[in-house]
Write a protein that binds this DNA or RNA. Sequence first.
DNA 1: CCACTTTTACCCACTTTTACCCAAGAAAAG
DNA 2: CTTTTCTTGGGTAAAAGTGGGTAAAAGTGG
Lengths: 150, 150
Amino acid sequence: MSRFTGEYEVRLDDKNRLRLPAVLLRQLGEEVKLGLVINRGFDKCLVLYPQKQWEKISDEVNQLNLYVTANREFARYFFRGATPLEPDASSRILMPKTLMEYAGIQQDVIIYAYGDQIEIWAKEAYERMMDSAPKDFATLAEKILGHKDV
Amino acid sequence: MSRFTGEYEVRLDDKNRLRLPAVLLRQLGEEVKLGLVINRGFDKCLVLYPQKQWEKISDEVNQLNLYVTANREFARYFFRGATPLEPDASSRILMPKTLMEYAGIQQDVIIYAYGDQIEIWAKEAYERMMDSAPKDFATLAEKILGHKDV
DNA sequence: CCACTTTTACCCACTTTTACCCAAGAAAAG
DNA sequence: CTTTTCTTGGGTAAAAGTGGGTAAAAGTGG
């Protein structure tokens, strides 16, 4: 089931605060109060997790056998920059500078929520990403959706 | 079986509200009350789904393992901009700005319903699309329908 | 360890947008 | 011609979003 949906255009103020849109907040529900975690995504974007979900994911990563070099490298890469956040009274989060740089975020930001992911993109990067359809989209669509008309 | 049919010319008011024509509403039936989802189409138009149908479609995509890059890209491209909507008491929906831009919608809009799709086009884009059709249409028709006794 | 600068947290006030409601005009039905 | 349904428009209160002041906290250098 799809927890999060929507694409939200937001703008950082000059204190680097990012307001979480009300619609998204409602989707998050009570969990916001337990805090959020922001991390680098696997692509040039950031990912926002509710505390609980973060714990679940990081537990999985922690169960990897860290004596295996590849696992160790993955774990290190995975956790890089993960930062706990607490929204203020106006539901704004303060974006960590290093993460902003990673995603190329300056002012205009797109929050993109799908499945149980919440991604944060620099607007230009988002548009560039969306402009180019994945290579074999049609093939995948047919395979996954079984529709010919997509 | 074809659920929806019709081509409706509608106009947004200056609050960006779009009224769903009564005829279409009747085709949608009770489902409207459960809400709708609007999303970018694969052409320069928007697509409107009854909540239920949206869930059916998106469930499949949600089952993808998002740690696989190709899946992630597919899901992203698929969900882009999906936004839940609830018609107001006069059966009007508030069009999200980003989606309007995507489809080039300003005031005049064509709602085009066929199969179990409801597409929303900017009027000019719709006309352009329809104008360009006839050329390939004959060929396609022949290819697709030609072997039947139509 | 202290003085000073920068960053962050918290608060308040203002603007814009949205949801909700009501009603009148237009079109269709009887 | 009257009644009903459909459509359009707009007023308004509440919600969402924006901006900034300021004090506390954290960081920095001597």
